[in-house]
Write a protein that binds this DNA or RNA. Structure first.
Length: 164
DNA sequence: CGCATTTGACCGGCGC
DNA sequence: GCGCCGGTCAAATGCG
């Protein structure tokens, strides 16, 4: 497994991603992201996660990961039958790292910080600084293993990868 | 001077 | 209906 830039690189060309600004939320093939899930959950794939191109990653190793292609309320049609499928692709990395600013090559703009009840550690909210790119990122330190950092990516980049 | 970060306010959902 | 809780906004601040 690589970073989400890998996700972009591998899946974007295959999924007919509409141009930026298009309402892509329902346009892309969800099955692609089911494939993505399988791809992500493969141990051998993300054990090879080693973007050596980024110095911050040098001693990191991804120890766990989860994802959900469609998170939200697909079965819940409260009232009228508006099935609002909020498809938010979410992938979570758990990375062994002393630093939580994992530079994956994208430009992130921090827009929030919260203390969560479950964890003594704050949670940081980032957004992709590319205009019209809806990708959000959430970084928080593992509550019981402070040497781990949980990074959650949400959304799909609607632009080509960062200028690396 | 233009940008990102910071940090408390604000907001909406949910449970009691 | 109220308060908690997680998520976001935005003004001020800091930094290049």
């Amino acid at each position: 497994m690589r970073t989400h830039s890998m996700i972009m690189a591998d899946n974007y060309p295959n999924t007919n991603i509409p141009p930026p600004g298009a309402t892509y939320e329902m346009n892309f093939e969800v099955s692609q992201f089911f494939e993505l899930n399988d791809w992500i959950e493969d141990d051998t794939l993300f054990s090879s996660f080693n973007p050596s191109g980024y110095p911050n990653y040098t001693s990191n190793e991804v120890v766990g990961m989860g994802s959900s292609s469609h998170e939200g309320t697909i079965n819940r049609e409260s009232g009228n039958g508006k099935e609002k499928k909020e498809i938010k692709d979410k992938v979570a990395f758990k990375t062994k790292s002393e630093i939580e600013i994992l530079d994956d090559g994208f430009k992130w703009r921090k827009y929030g910080k919260k203390m969560v009840k479950n964890s003594p550690n704050p949670r940081n909210y980032y957004k992709c600084s590319v205009e019209r790119c809806p990708v959000k990122k959430r970084v928080e330190r593992d509550k019981e293993d402070p040497c781990y950092v949980v990074t959650t990516y949400e959304g799909i980049h609607n632009h080509q990868g960062p200028t690396v």
